[in-house]
Amino acid sequence: MKINVNSTDYNLDVPDNTSLLDALRVHLNLTGSKYGCGEGACGACKVLIDGRAVASCITPVASVQNKSIITIEGLEKDGKLHPVQQAFLDEDAFQCAYCSSGMIISAVGLKTKNPKPSRQQVIEAMQGNICRCCVYPRIINAIIKA
């Protein structure tokens, strides 16, 4: 099957029910998206599919053919971080950083639809992204800053 990830086309020889997360991590060596709960509830594995943040651990790779997939690796352009990535650094919104790629992807999805979200809109949009280190205030500040 053919998928487009970070503006590059890839041909994969995997079963249709392979998770997008496994396709990315194991077959394409794009390891920025993390395996967390395996049930689509924690947000660590999120990627953008046609601009929408989606849990890749429960998304069959066959369902994303002819769609645009952006991973955390695809946000940086020409050596420059995406504004959301930079804001996370500026606001020290990382501790262990395991959740960070999913948080950033979700924030990019939000900011694409709503460039100036309110604090409450950020909180609502980030539901389904869990940070075990509990740096939520810094994460929210980073998203608003971006």
Rank of each mutant, 00 (worst) to 15 (best):
K2N: 15
V5F: 08
S7I: 05
S7L: 11
T8C: 11
D9P: 04
L12S: 10
V14R: 13
V14S: 10
V14W: 08
P15W: 06
P15L: 10
P15C: 06
D16L: 11
S19F: 09
L20C: 11
L21Y: 06
R25E: 05
N29Y: 14
L30M: 15
G32A: 04
S33R: 06
S33W: 02
Y35R: 13
G36K: 03
C37Q: 04
E39Q: 14
G40T: 11
A41S: 12
A44Q: 09
C45F: 04
K46E: 00
V47T: 14
V47I: 13
G51H: 02
R52Q: 15
A53M: 04
V54L: 09
C57W: 07
C57T: 02
I58M: 12
V61L: 06
V64K: 07
Q65A: 14
N66I: 03
S68R: 13
I70M: 12
T71N: 08
T71G: 01
T71I: 07
E73Q: 14
E73P: 10
E76D: 09
E76I: 08
K77S: 13
K77H: 13
D78Y: 09
L81W: 02
H82G: 00
P83E: 01
V84F: 00
Q85S: 02
Q85G: 00
Q86P: 03
F88R: 00
F88E: 00
L89N: 13
L89D: 09
L89G: 07
E91M: 13
D92P: 04
F94I: 06
C96K: 05
Y98H: 04
Y98T: 00
Y98I: 03
S100Q: 15
S100R: 02
I105D: 01
S106Q: 13
S106I: 01
A107S: 14
N114G: 08
P115T: 11
Q120M: 08
Q121H: 05
Q121P: 09
Q121E: 15
Q121N: 09
V122C: 01
A125G: 08
A125V: 06
Q127Y: 07
G128C: 06
I130V: 14
C131R: 05
C131F: 04
P137A: 02
R138Y: 09
A142D: 00
